[in-house]
């Protein structure tokens, strides 16, 4: 069985873009539905932010790559998603259109952008520590566990000054690597409840069809039904991503081949870590 895995937001924009008709179509659709020009990474209008544009870039590249995989004859039997990978995952599973996925992502990004008017936020990748010390660091510094990607790869999220203190503590505790990234909002934390009403309004503007492929959610590892999608999208912004659990569930479901559909190869690397660790035990 093949699984398409949709990663979350990329942290950087690669200026080298594909040059073919599929990408041209996606770029045109992106400009039409969001105002973001993928070629020069600019935006028509004043709303949005660099983070929101990176989210759009990530979704556009996922949609493009899904088309390319299909052209190469790689068809998915299952779909999995990580964080904001839910939006292209919904499109590729036939629940919403590609254009709606792009527009939805942009509107979510703009809502999140409004949060940084009152506070500065950051995300932080912590590599090397186990879950227990990471949870202590989060608690000690008033930040939250946002991703549990493997037994040694985590993402913390919260207010920037708290995240900086968490970074210092993680390094002092022996983390192999800690990297902070600015973020418009404290993604995957209860702090996102501040914009829940606004988000609910955005999500309710779209109609979600039944996914035509099983689409695994990253919170409970259940397959999403159309009626559950709006609620899942709200919850996922406020709760951590459990990638390790998702990978294990996908293997149990019989997936043999994983295809990362988007920018980078972090999910493949997490999978490699989880598999290697299982073989060591």
């Amino acid at each position: 069985m093949n699984c398409y895995m949709f990663p979350g937001q990329p942290l950087t924009h690669n200026a080298q873009l594909p040059d073919d008709s599929d990408f041209s179509e996606i770029a045109e659709l992106t400009l039409l539905r969001t105002g973001v020009n993928l070629h020069d990474f600019t935006r028509q209008g004043e709303d949005g932010s660099v983070s929101a544009m990176l989210q759009i870039y990530g979704v556009a590249m996922s949609l493009y790559q899904a088309r390319r995989f299909r052209l190469q004859g790689v068809r998915p039997d299952l779909i999995a998603e990580h964080s904001m990978g839910i939006y292209p995952a919904l499109a590729v599973s036939g629940s919403i259109s590609e254009g709606d996925a792009l527009e939805l992502t942009w509107r979510v990004g703009c809502c999140m952008n409004s949060m940084k008017k009152s506070r500065e936020y950051a995300l932080g990748c912590v590599v090397g520590l186990t879950l227990e010390p990471v949870l202590s660091i989060a608690e000690n510094n008033g930040v939250y566990l946002a991703n549990l990607n493997t037994s040694r790869h985590f993402l913390l999220s919260g207010e920037r000054r708290n995240m900086e203190a968490a970074e210092t503590e993680a390094l002092a505790d022996g983390a192999f690597s800690v990297k902070l990234f600015p973020s418009d909002a404290p993604l995957h934390t209860p702090l996102m409840a501040e914009i829940e009403g606004e988000m609910r309004g955005v999500f309710s503007d779209y109609r979600y069809l039944e996914p035509n492929l099983p689409l695994l959610d990253h919170i409970n590892q259940d397959f999403l039904a159309a009626t559950e999608i709006t609620e899942f999208m709200i919850r996922e912004l406020e709760l951590p991503v459990y990638w390790e659990k998702s990978f294990i569930a996908l293997k149990k479901a019989g997936v043999g081949k994983f295809f990362e559909v988007g920018v980078g190869d972090s999910l493949k690397k997490y999978n490699r870590w989880i598999e290697n660790e299982a073989s060591r035990q």
Partner: peptide
């Protein structure tokens, strides 16, 4: 390579 790869190499070197 990135930090995910580096940690994988740490484990391999130790093993």
């Amino acid at each position: 390579l990135d930090s995910i790869d580096a940690l994988q190499l740490v484990v391999a070197m130790e093993k």
